[in-house]
Design a binder for these strands. Structure first.
Lengths: 169, 169
DNA sequence: CTTGGAATGTCAACAAGGCTGACGTATTGT
DNA sequence: ACAATACGTCAGCCTTGTTGACATTCCAAG
C-alpha cells in the first residue's frame, strides 16, 4: 500500500501510471463521501442540508462578508444562495446587516445560535479529519495538502489562499 | 507507515491544530470542485450529469456488475439509479444483459459508444490528476492517498479496497 | 438635479437528482 | 406451492442548482 517509490536510477514515474491515477480518483470519490457524512447527519434533523453548512462555514470564516463574496466563494448563483440565506435568517442563525457605506450590500454574521451550530458541525468534521491526520502522520498530511492544492483550478486556488492567509498560520 | 514526527522534545503535534485541520477541510472543498469540473463540462452538452458519470465509471471498472452492486457502490436507491440507467440505455451507452445463472439479475456493460464516452471523461479527469501528481511528486502522492483512505468510513474503505485489489497493482 | 446604467438583492418557476412508499413481474430456492 | 429476491416503475416529495423578471440603491454623465 503506497510505499515510497524507490528512488532508482531514472526519475521513476511509476506513480503517474493510469492505474495509480485511477486509484487516486476513486480515493477522492470515497473519501469525499466520508468527509461530508458527519455534518450531513447533524443537519438532517434540522431541515437543512449541505448548502447551509457551506454558507455557515464561510460566514464564520469571514464575518461581515457580503452576499456577492459568498456567491463567488461557493460558486453558485445569487438566487440559489439567497434561498439558503433566507432559511438561515428565518431560523435565527444568521444576521444580515445593511451596509453602512453601500446600502445595497448585506453584511452577514452568525448569531449566537448560528455560531453554536457552526461549532457543532465543524467539531464533527474536524474530528474525522483529526483522526485521519493522526493515522497518516505529518509527512502524509503535507503531501495530502500539496496534491489537493495542485488539483484546484486557478480561481479556487486564489480563493483558498486568500482564506488561508487570513486565518492564521 | 508512521513517519517519525519531527523528533524534537515533545511529540510535535502541531499538524493537528484546529487551524491545520480547517485548512485541510477547505482544501478538500476546493479541490473536489476542480476534481469534478472537467467531466461536468463534457457531460453538460449531452443532457447528462455527474450521476451518469459515476455510473459509467463503475460499470467500466466492473463490467457485468449487477444493478444491486452498483446501487451499493454509489450509495443511492434503486429508483434513483434506475432513472440514470434508463437514460444511459436509451442513449445506447450501456447494455443490460439478463443473467445466465440467475435470470433476475441484469448485468451491465458499456457499449462501444459508452466506452468511448468513458474514455473521454476519464482522460479529462486523469489529465488533471496527472498534472497534480506531477507537481506534487511521488512522496506527496503517497501521503495524499494515505490521508484519503483514513478519511473514508468503514463501508467505503471496504468498497475502495475491493476495487483496488481487482484493478491491478 | 435627474436620469440611466451597473451593482445588489429578492421572488417565481423550473430541472436534476436525491429520497420514500407502493406495487408488479420474473425467477429462485425451500 | 410459497416466500424471498432482483429488478422495474409510478407517484410524490425535498434539496439545491438554474434562468427570468423585478426592486432597490449607488454613481456618474448630462
Amino acid at each position: 500500500m503506497a510505499e515510497a517509490p524507490a528512488p532508482q536510477g531514472g526519475s521513476s514515474l511509476l506513480f503517474l501510471t493510469d492505474e495509480q491515477l485511477r486509484k487516486g480518483i476513486e480515493a477522492m470519490f470515497f473519501a469525499y463521501r466520508g468527509f461530508t457524512a458527519d455534518p450531513d447527519r447533524i443537519l438532517e434533523g434540522r431541515e437543512m442540508g449541505r448548502a447551509h453548512h457551506r454558507a455557515i462555514h464561510f460566514i464564520h470564516r469571514s464575518p461581515g462578508t457580503t452576499v456577492s463574496n459568498l456567491m463567488a466563494l461557493l460558486g453558485v448563483t445569487k438566487q440559489s444562495l439567497n434561498r439558503v440565506l433566507r432559511a438561515l435568517i428565518a431560523a435565527g442563525l444568521v444576521e444580515a446587516r445593511v451596509g453602512r457605506r453601500d446600502r445595497r450590500e448585506r453584511h452577514l454574521y452568525l448569531t449566537r445560535e448560528g455560531a453554536a451550530l457552526e461549532r457543532e458541525l465543524s467539531d464533527a468534521q474536524r474530528e474525522r479529519m483529526r483522526a485521519a491526520y493522526r493515522t497518516a502522520g505529518p509527512v502524509a498530511v503535507a503531501g495530502f495538502r500539496q496534491v489537493l492544492e495542485a488539483m484546484m483550478d486557478e480561481e479556487s486556488r486564489r480563493q483558498y489562499e486568500a482564506l488561508a492567509g487570513r486565518g492564521g498560520q
